[in-house]
Design a protein around this nucleic acid. Structure first.
Lengths: 135, 135
DNA sequence: CTGTATCCACACGGATACTG
DNA sequence: CAGTATCCGTGTGGATACAG
């Protein structure tokens, strides 16, 4: 997939991280931030309409439309369309989408728990960098 | 952070997903694919040098440099520089970096377990879309 | 209300060359 | 070996207008 995987000639090559390629692939699919946030939102409220999700996440129409289409295509989200006037479309998680909640929640929890620590580390790092620059 | 969060005036507003903004923020930091792959690699091998990581992941010099700097700044990775000739720099996970392994591994496992199901869902979706187009 | 289409700015990220 | 600097193509994603 990447030249580096082929060119590597020493003891470190693709064999040392055989899953990196596939993990990379899946993360590119469902790992982007909008997908994750949509899944989190749906997992919290069960069923949401298009504009509810839109307002809820602060996402643009375009990106929400694209994200939902991809999630539906990947089988994580079920789309239910009511041909009324005005139209009404509801989104909910499929069983596979539900199963995705668990790892996503783990990631979200870690994020929230370590947000402060990361901020602190950044401050320290920046202060140190500043000192090195002036010193 | 996003206009939508402020503009929302009906029953659905930022209060319904209060963490979305912050989760979004953290995911933007450590959720990108190179960061995740670097953490996975370091968690597998403990300590790696710059070029080892580079060959291992098939990442460009530029992106690896940027990614490692951010990870060090966020306190996930520890950088150890040996001022020898030629220079030698080793990277390893900090305790916080170690704690990140768990949610990342959960996500990676889910990804691997559901890759086939996703592919299958896509095929079905695409076939259906094709049928609708022609019919 | 639920989208699609178009335009456009900007960040991501690879290739290449250069430095210590 | 371990980076930094530069160039530049591409994708991401918002704004806007329009359609069903």
């Amino acid at each position: 997939m990447y030249p580096g995987h082929i060119i590597g000639t020493t003891m470190i090559d693709s064999e040392q991280c055989p899953d990196c390629g596939r993990i990379n692939e899946v993360l590119s699919r469902v790992g982007d931030r909008w997908s994750v946030l949509v899944v989190i939102s749906l997992s919290q409220y069960g069923t949401l309409r298009f504009n509810e999700l839109k307002r809820n996440l602060g996402i643009s129409q375009r990106m929400l439309s694209l994200t939902l289409r991809e999630l539906a295509r990947d089988g994580l989200v079920k789309r239910t369309h009511y041909p009324t006037i005005p139209p009404k479309v509801e989104y909910t998680l499929t069983p596979m989408g539900e199963s995705f909640r668990e790892p996503v929640r783990a990631l979200g929890n870690w994020a929230l728990e370590n947000l402060a620590a990361i901020d602190s580390a950044r401050e320290k790092y920046d202060a140190q960098a500043e000192k090195l620059k002036s010193g």
